[in-house]
């Protein structure tokens, strides 16, 4: 399956390079065409690939780790918290003074949210408290983002809230790719190595411990990995929701419901979803381009509804 997914991702990546409002830029036959491809489409397609990949992977990790098929960076507030931290870095001018401030702030925000959520899960109250905690984090982060933007002296900052929260990878240049990609790749490497222990964790923490898992250091490792991935992704693209929810769901049954086995396919499906969605928003005949996050939410939110209904309260009750 992974081979087919890889082919799909490669095809969508190439499609993403080929499609855009200027259609075939190489027909211009001069540097401008080259600039369009290199400065606009390559960063956009590569960011789509990486961000989709890490969001899908983060969803798979969170779902396996929290033993909860509704866990997703956007739904439980990890993206929103990362977004708030990135907004702070951006509007305070810190990001302009020190380029790495933007992804680092996003990573810190995401890691704090993951730690908060883990605290809620540890106290043993299950799915409901996890989701309520997510609601709370989302609400606080959204309010704080509005506050920071209202304080910014740039007259356009406040109008940006809706655009920023909706998430987009339009017109990011190579600098954004350069500052975010390393963190996303390192984060992915950290969690990909933990697949075996995720399987053990799916049997419960006590069982995992008896199988030789150091649950404490594993928790730190996963927190760090998800923080790096979601934080860096959100700091450049805003909140792109539901990718982390959909991707593991699509492949879970095909890997025998092993959380560790969902990691790589989820990453590939996530990348395919974001690349595909980002190509679709470019082609939709809307007056101005639809935000990528709006599109993924339009498609993803009904998916969440379906997942909740299918569950029949089985895990909602625990």
């Amino acid at each position: 399956m992974n081979r087919w997914l890889l082919l799909l991702v490669a095809a969508l990546y190439l499609l993403s390079l080929a499609v855009g409002p200027a259609w075939w830029p190489w027909r211009l036959g001069n540097e401008v065409g080259w600039t369009i491809v290199w400065e606009l489409r390559v960063p956009r397609a590569t960011l789509g690939l990486l961000i989709g990949g890490v969001l899908g992977l983060s969803g798979a990790v969170l779902q396996g780790w929290l033993r909860n098929p509704l866990a997703e960076p956007g739904v439980i507030g990890v993206s929103a918290c990362a977004g708030f931290a990135a907004v702070c870095a951006f509007y305070s001018g810190l990001a302009a003074a020190f380029v790495l401030a933007l992804p680092l702030a996003g990573i810190a925000g995401a890691a704090i949210a993951v730690a908060l959520l883990m605290g809620a899960v540890r106290s043993g109250t299950g799915t409901v408290s996890l989701l309520l905690m997510g609601v709370a984090i989302n609400a606080i982060a959204a309010a704080l983002i509005s506050l920071v933007l209202a304080l910014s002296p740039n007259p356009f900052a406040y109008q940006e809230i809706s655009l920023w929260l909706a998430g987009s990878i339009v017109d990011r240049d190579l600098r954004y790719l350069a500052i975010a990609a390393p963190f996303m790749i390192v984060g992915a490497a950290i969690v990909l190595g933990a697949g075996r222990w995720l399987d053990a964790l799916s049997l419960g923490e006590d069982t995992a411990r008896s199988l030789g898992a150091d649950t404490r250091s594993l928790g730190l490792r996963l927190t760090l990995g998800v923080g790096l991935m979601v934080g860096a992704a959100t700091s450049v693209a805003g909140v792109i929701g539901f990718v982390g929810l959909i991707a593991p769901h699509l492949i879970r049954a095909r890997v025998g419901f092993r959380p560790g086995g969902t990691l790589v396919p989820s990453m590939l499906v996530g990348a395919a979803l974001v690349l595909g969605a980002d190509t679709v928003v470019r082609l939709l005949p809307t007056a101005s381009e639809l935000q990528l996050g709006v599109f993924t939410s339009l498609v993803g939110a009904p998916f969440l509804v379906r997942a909740v209904r299918k569950a029949h309260g089985a895990w909602l009750a625990t």
Partner: peptide, 16 residues
Amino acid sequence: NPARATEFVGHHALLA
């Protein structure tokens, strides 16, 4: 005063 809305001012593609 940085904002996403106005950051295009320094976009590499425009500089090119």
